[in-house]
């Protein structure tokens, strides 16, 4: 067996932990070849160390972190399925949004609009006032006409 083949076999057979499964040809070569023996020792050590980075127990808070990440970063449609707090949180967010919109409208009409659009409002205001005066005059004329009708036309009709 060539050293190259033996070293590939070492990579193949060395386990993450514990003993390497027995292979007669490999063991024979390792007994005779210092280089391959050195590779085998070092590879085994490196693999063991690398395997030590693995997580071997469950993290009990991992699920909670996933849900938190979902809540922080995912769409409402996705979160809705996965958290019982969803509806409450969504409702609170919508209520806040609605309150902000109403406050915006109120502020807009009471504070900002008069400042920004003062001339237009005044023009409209006086136009409205004028229109209402005209309506009052119309009503006055109509009332007079009705009185004339009752007092004079009826009298005329009776004469007839």
């Amino acid at each position: 067996m060539k050293c190259t083949e033996v070293q590939e076999l070492i990579i193949d057979l060395t386990p993450l932990s514990g003993e390497r499964p027995s292979n007669a040809a490999l063991e024979q070569h390792l007994q005779e070849c210092v280089s391959c023996r050195r590779v085998a020792e070092r590879y085994s050590s490196a693999l063991y160390e690398l395997a030590g980075e693995r997580q071997l127990t469950n993290d009990p808070f991992f699920y909670d972190r996933i849900i938190k990440k979902m809540n922080d970063g995912q769409s409402v449609a996705v979160r809705k399925l996965w958290s019982s707090k969803e509806y409450y949180q969504l409702g609170r967010a919508l209520a806040g949004f609605a309150a902000a919109v109403l406050l915006g409208i109120w502020l807009g009409s009471r504070v900002i609009a008069p400042l920004v659009t003062t001339p237009a409002v005044k023009e409209n205001y006086s136009a409205e006032k004028q229109e209402s005066y005209e309506q009052e005059i119309d009503y006055g004329s109509e009332a007079l006409a009705r009185l004339e009708y009752y007092f004079f036309d009826d009298a005329n009709q009776e004469k007839k």
């Binding site: 070092r42 590879y43 050590s45 490196a46 693999l47 063991y48 160390e49 690398l50």
Partner: peptide
């Protein structure tokens, strides 16, 4: 051992 790990 740490260095061997890094190499691998």
């Amino acid at each position: 051992a740490e260095e061997l790990k890094r190499i691998l």
